[in-house]
Simulated assay, not measured.
Amino acid sequence: MNNHGSILPYSHEIGRIHNEEPHIVTEQLKAGAKLAFIQNGEFKLVVNAEQSIDVRNGFCYMLTSDNHWQLEHRFEANSQIDFVTIDFSRQYFDTFTQLPQQTLEASYQGVTAISMPINACMQSVICQLHTCPLNSCSTPFYRQAKCFELAALLVQQLETKDNRTAFPHTKDALRAKEVAQLICQDLAKSYTSEQLAKLAGFNVRKLNNLFIGLYSCSVADFIRNKKMEKAWELLAIHKLDVTNTSAMVGYSFAHFSTLFHQHFGVPPSHVR
């Protein structure tokens, strides 16, 4: 887990938690807003020792309070969580609480919690936060900028009139998650939506609707997003060349370069 300080009235944390045993982490928080973006894993949040929230993979959460409050993170055994959290001080409270609150998860003693799926733009920024390509001196400034960009994307999504997506709590959703796991197991493979729908026993429309409910994107967009996230990691962290990276995510060199530039706004050669 990596914690980075800040010259601004906010703090952030980027990292991975692996729990071999059930584990509880308790935070004592001041007035303000806490944003949590969960890229992998599931656990429970408990607000003021009373209200429980199920935190889901692929969702972001905004919790606000105008007073001191307590937050418990309850992790199951053998759980792995990839996350970004951003804590804003009291001076940002009004900015977040004036937003439309379409999806109220909890309200207890002045604490409210809102959840929504992480969209493709957020996923791109989260990937860049986890795999910062800059050196140690410039890393804090890069990550501060990306955290504010991530907060801006969340605010923008909340300001949208209808950002709610029904979350499917069904056996069909579990099968859709199995499809997502299959995709992520080998990103060099190139599946079509039709192939995956047939494997899951759905038609393409139903599988896409399930993916939108679970991951806020279609099957095709999910595949592309995961391939791009992996490509950024291979280039920025493992320092692979563009040719090998494109092969490892199942694209030709030319097609990969075009998609990468469209997704991140920079050509892959600029990341290494």
Rank of each mutant, 00 (worst) to 15 (best):
S65V: 04
E21T: 08
V25W: 09
Y142H: 00
I38N: 00
L158D: 04
V249F: 11
E178L: 02
F253H: 10
C132A: 11
P168W: 05
F93P: 01
Q91D: 05
A247F: 15
K177N: 03
R74A: 13
T170G: 03
Q123K: 14
K239N: 13
I212P: 01
T131V: 01
K239Q: 08
P140K: 05
N78P: 14
K161Y: 09
T131F: 03
M248Q: 14
S65P: 05
L240H: 07
S190F: 10
W69T: 04
A220R: 12
L63H: 06
S269C: 11
K30S: 15
M228N: 15
S115M: 04
A188C: 06
G15Y: 01
D162A: 14
Q28V: 00
L63Q: 11
E50L: 08
H263I: 05
F83M: 14
P168L: 07
K227L: 13
A152W: 03
F83R: 09
A113T: 03
L71G: 09
S11T: 10
L234K: 12
N203K: 02
N78Y: 13
N67T: 10
L196I: 02
F88K: 08
T160R: 12
N225M: 05
V204H: 08
T64N: 11
I212K: 02
N208R: 04
R175G: 03
R224V: 08
K198M: 10
I7N: 10
F141L: 06
N19V: 08
A36E: 14
S79K: 12
A77P: 01
K206N: 08
F43T: 12
Q98V: 05
S269W: 11
L196F: 02
R164M: 00
E229N: 12
L210R: 00
L99D: 07
Q102R: 07
Y142D: 02
S193R: 01
Q39H: 02
T131P: 07
Q144D: 14
Y92C: 05
F167R: 13
Q262N: 05
E13F: 03
K189S: 12
L99R: 04
T26Y: 15
S11P: 07
D54T: 10
A113W: 10
K171H: 10
K189L: 13
E149V: 11
N48C: 11
Y142I: 05
T64P: 01
D87K: 12
S257W: 00
R205C: 06
H270D: 13
I118S: 05
M116C: 01
L129W: 05
Q80W: 08
A247M: 11
Q51N: 09
A106E: 13
E149Q: 15
H255I: 05
D186R: 04
A36P: 08
M116N: 15
N225S: 12
G201M: 15
V179C: 02
E42A: 04
D241T: 06
G201V: 04
N67L: 09
L174E: 00
S269L: 07
T170Q: 03
S257R: 02
G250Q: 15
F222V: 05
G41M: 06
E159D: 04
A166C: 00
R175C: 00
E21P: 09
P168Y: 12
R205H: 13
L235H: 11
K177H: 04
P267R: 03
T160C: 00
F253N: 05
A188S: 15
P133D: 14
C137E: 09
E194D: 00
W69E: 13
N119A: 06
A200E: 02
A254E: 06
Y10L: 04
K44C: 08
T258D: 02
